[in-house]
Design a protein around this nucleic acid. Structure first.
Length: 578
DNA sequence: GCCGTTTTCGGCCCGACTGTTTTCAGTCG
């Protein structure tokens, strides 16, 4: 059985949770979490590294001990240490840590004094008013626990980026219009352009915190006020989205923006650099601690650029702030020049009424032209999947004539002849070669048999790429955020095969797909494999989804040169020759 | 448990808020 990075990370996180409840040294606990994170976010497969006998201690946060444990997990699928811990401490206690207001200390207390080991028992204990009698806890904590447990199953944990966007932008407008507010921005994972956000972090500059907070909690979308202080408040929107507002003074704006944008790990890395220079970074600024430690002197804080500059670093774009090597790259002067929406010159996947889209050929082309695109590929579905009413070969031929006429009529945007052809279970394609070879762009996709083994799925995709007529693998893992997980596939092999055959992978910009994800984008870049950022639009409005795809590509360190459709049609056409 | 242009030992980010306290621990981000 293959051991994936996520398996190793999960075991380490479980060890960390249980050790923490047992009251182990917090830095030891953190070491397990750091290691889990390193393994989970690296683009290589750790079991490959073990197999090739590479030195695991080269990895950040992995020393001799954890390297040995990784080898054990890769070899056996389990960790003996975890089994031993689970003899002492019930594994389900780790789940209780996820309940709001419960940390390791309280979980330990509730377990030891009330023998609670599961969420169900926790709920019962709270309903029997047993929690409030414990020393250090009280009725409010008990109520909060009960409320959170009851809400748990109903609420989805993270909010998709587009859904968050719909609520953030009006809130920012509201805040900016308040008296005394000079700026308001969303920070956090939203600013880092993550595909989903947990809580939403919003920052406002104002001299008078209390007033702004009072107006914030009175905002129309607020359903519940979780906390309300002088400079900080947390509320829950009607949609269930948690929103944090922090109010800071102008001189601290850059420091606060940096701090609340995160990621946490990025900030920790910066703070450690600061410590080497006798500087302290907090959300109010950067402070020189070499003089009187009681009264440090503020040396920066108004802008992010100024703060990075103190550490001899260029400003690092928020999308890169994930502690995935961006600080080291910045130090070397080696930060990528990230692709922007303006760099994109066309769109290589969209649908019309001819299959499951809503706009006509002309409507889609005109909408794309209005966005400034130089070219668009019309890629209606092939016939295999009944629900999407795909095109048969003869219909596709008619379509090509139509496109020729439209190109002559319009002139200001080039319409490319394309298709999104289905890959059948055995890796063959749903349209004959003599049809495919006449097209400018052949997008190929998996829409069925998601449950094949990783080996079979990988072989299936590679076999499809063996056909010299295909160009771009659409939504390469077929995951749908919050709905369907990626199918099992060896993405490294798929990428290598694409590179050998002159094929490309897509970053599908639909906000519920964003597939390839950020780590896969980075993986492609490291191999020198180019990607297309395509909207897969089914309506004219969806052509604007490009911004989500660009956001994901930026998180994956991609530059204009890594992206097919950041090229002119002439250059792109050369690349599509196989 | 990890790590090192001070260090192989002694550190490991730091402040706000809440609820429970009677001066602060626990949790959170």
């Amino acid at each position: 059985m293959p051991v994936y990075n996520s398996d190793v990370a999960e075991i380490f996180n479980q060890v960390a949770d249980l050790l923490e409840i047992e009251g182990a040294n917090r830095y030891r606990v953190r070491a397990y979490r750091d290691a889990a994170r390193t393994i989970a976010t690296m683009s290589r497969n750790v079991s490959d590294m073990v197999e090739e006998d590479e030195d695991l201690t080269e990895l950040h946060g992995i020393g001799e001990d954890l390297a040995g444990k990784i080898k054990e997990i890769v070899g056996t699928g389990d960790l003996e240490q975890l089994e031993e811990i689970e003899q002492r401490t019930p594994p389900a206690l780790a789940t209780l840590l996820e309940v709001e207001g419960l940390g390791p200390k309280r979980v330990k207390k509730i377990y030891e004094e009330l023998e609670v080991t599961s969420v169900e028992e926790l709920k019962e204990a709270a309903e029997e008013d047993e929690i409030r009698d414990l020393y250090g806890l009280g009725p409010k904590t008990e109520d909060k626990v009960l409320e959170d447990v009851e809400r748990w199953s109903a609420v989805e944990e993270r909010t998709r980026r587009d859904v968050a966007e719909e609520r953030v932008e009006p809130l920012l407008t509201y805040l900016r219009d308040l008296e005394g507010v000079r700026r308001a921005e969303a920070a956090g994972s939203y600013r880092r352009k993550k595909e989903t956000v947990g809580d939403l972090d919003v920052l406002a500059i104002s001299g008078k915190g209390g007033d702004v907070i009072a107006q914030f909690v009175a905002y129309e979308d607020v359903e519940e006020i979780v906390s309300e202080g002088e400079t900080r408040s947390t509320v829950v929107f009607r949609s269930g989205l948690h929103v944090d507002l922090r109010v800071v003074e102008e001189g601290s704006y850059g420091a606060a923006l940096l701090y609340f944008t995160g990621s946490k790990q990025h900030n920790i890395t910066l703070r450690n650099i600061a410590l080497e220079q006798d500087l302290k970074v907090n959300e109010y600024g950067v402070w020189d601690t070499s003089g009187d430690p009681e009264e440090p002197e503020q040396v920066a804080g108004e802008t992010e650029e100024e703060i990075y500059g103190l550490f001899d670093l260029p400003w690092i774009p928020p999308e890169l702030r994930e502690d995935r090597g961006e600080v080291a790259a910045a130090r070397r002067g080696d930060l990528p020049n990230l692709i922007t929406l303006d760099d994109v010159r066309g769109d290589l996947q969209m649908h019309t009424k001819a299959s499951d889209g809503r706009g006509s050929l002309r409507e889609m082309a005109e909408a794309a032209r209005d966005l400034g695109h130089e070219y668009v590929a019309i890629t209606d579905h092939s016939g295999y999947i009944g629900v999407t009413q795909g095109l048969e070969a003869d219909e596709l031929a008619e379509r090509m004539d139509e496109i020729d006429e439209m190109n002559e009529a319009m002139g200001d945007v080039r319409i490319l002849k394309g298709v999104e052809v289905d890959v059948l279970e055995d890796g063959s394609l749903d349209l004959p070669d003599d049809v495919l070879e006449k097209l400018d762009v052949v997008v190929f996709a998996i829409h069925s048999h998601f449950d094949l083994s990783a080996d079979k799925q990988t072989e299936r995709i590679i076999r499809a790429m063996d056909n010299p007529n295909v160009h771009i693998l659409a939504h390469p893992t077929s995951r749908q955020i919050g709905k369907r997980s990626a199918y099992d596939v060896d993405m490294g092999r798929v990428m290598d095969a694409a590179l050998e055959r002159g094929c490309f992978l897509e970053v599908n910009a639909q906000p519920d797909r964003l597939d390839l994800d950020d780590l896969h984008c980075k993986m492609a870049k490291e191999r020198g494999l180019k990607v297309a950022i395509s909207t897969d639009a089914h309506t004219q409005d969806e052509l604007r989804f490009l911004r989500y795809g660009v956001g994901q590509a930026r998180r994956g360190w991609l530059e204009a040169g890594d992206v097919l459709n950041a090229r002119s049609w002439d250059d792109l056409r050369d690349l599509l020759e196989r």
